[in-house]
């Protein structure tokens, strides 16, 4: 992988680049600062008419309220969100990898139609299928269960698209070598293709984690007991109630973002590398 070098750039232009980067970074970081600041302010300060850079006194009551909340205990919600995201990420990525490999590398007549069938689902807005899906899951007894929460989200057509792109570029020699060793298609997949796609798997796994963590509508209608609420649902309890508890709202928002941000910071290297493996660029 060769990096592009901008040789011949003068020092001035390099400084210019850094300056521009910083200028752009400010509006990107601003909302995070606001989120943090808001979570430490009181209700009165949040409703005030003058701008504040930072609260007068750091107020942690919002966090206390959010975790202490008897209707929507944030701790339990965090656990649920983690469970859902941690189970969904590897499973959905694995399923997509399997299907992506099959349509990319197994020469059967059905490969293209199946691929198109999978991709077609990307064009239908989730809203179109939301209510019927809910009824389907409900009639299977999935309401208020963990499987009802997790299973419908395991089938990610976009990931199949990416995996297919990646596997299409998989070197034929490796597959041939595996064949010579006596491996069938499944064997080639399990022992050669899959391990070598770890980068993309990691990348898509992280993206799936994020998407599941941030999902709101589905967990709302599936989870009836507060025991099943995810973080986003728990957070919404502070928002549509008649008396909005803003510090608790922002505190739970901070709590909902931090785990993701951490996962992100750790894994963003993978994500970048993973994207480069899909061949989507060219």
């Amino acid at each position: 992988m060769r990096t592009v070098r901008r040789r011949g750039g003068r020092e001035g232009s390099r400084v210019g680049s850094y300056l521009a980067a910083v200028v752009f970074a400010i509006p990107f970081l601003l909302p995070f600062y606001l989120l943090l600041r808001n979570s430490l302010m009181t209700q009165a300060e949040l409703g005030a008419l003058e701008w504040r850079w930072w609260p007068e006194k750091i107020n942690l009551q919002g966090f206390v309220d959010a975790f202490d909340n008897s209707t929507a205990p944030l701790g339990r919600a965090l656990f649920n969100s983690t469970m859902v995201a941690v189970v969904s990420a590897p499973v959905s990525t694995l399923l997509a990898s399997m299907a992506g490999y099959a349509v990319a590398r197994i020469r059967v007549a059905a490969a293209r139609p199946v691929f198109l069938l999978v991709i077609a689902t990307m064009m239908v807005p989730g809203a179109a299928t939301f209510v019927p899906t809910f009824v389907v899951v409900g009639s299977m007894g999935g309401v208020n269960t963990l499987w009802g929460l997790i299973v419908p989200g395991l089938f990610n057509a976009f990931a199949v698209l990416l995996f297919r792109g990646f596997y299409l570029r998989f070197p034929q020699e490796i597959e041939d070598a595996g064949r010579v060793d006596g491996l069938g298609h499944l064997g080639v997949y399990l022992r050669l293709a899959l391990p070598n796609s770890a980068g993309l798997i990691a990348a898509l796994g992280v993206l799936s984690f994020i998407e599941n963590w941030n999902a709101f509508l589905w967990p709302l209608v599936i989870g009836q007991d507060p025991a099943y609420w995810t973080v986003q649902v728990a957070m919404s309890t502070n928002l549509t109630a008649q008396a909005i508890n803003m510090p608790a709202l922002f505190a739970s928002a901070v709590v909902s973002v931090i785990p993701l941000a951490v996962v992100f910071l750790v894994a963003q290297r993978w994500i970048v590398r993973g994207v480069m493996l899909t061949g989507i660029k060219g």
């Binding site: 399997m98 059967v108 490969a111 199946v114 009824v135 419908p152 089938f155 997949y189």
Partner: peptide, 30 residues
């Protein structure tokens, strides 16, 4: 070919069945 078909089915079945149940049935119903 037979091996290929078998492998194809095994690898794509979960995704296809899942999309069928949770997307296509829902889409058809819709």
């Amino acid at each position: 070919d037979r091996g290929a078909w078998l492998a194809f089915v095994v690898l794509t079945a979960p995704m296809v069945v899942g999309l069928f149940v949770f997307k296509y049935v829902a889409m058809g119903w819709g």
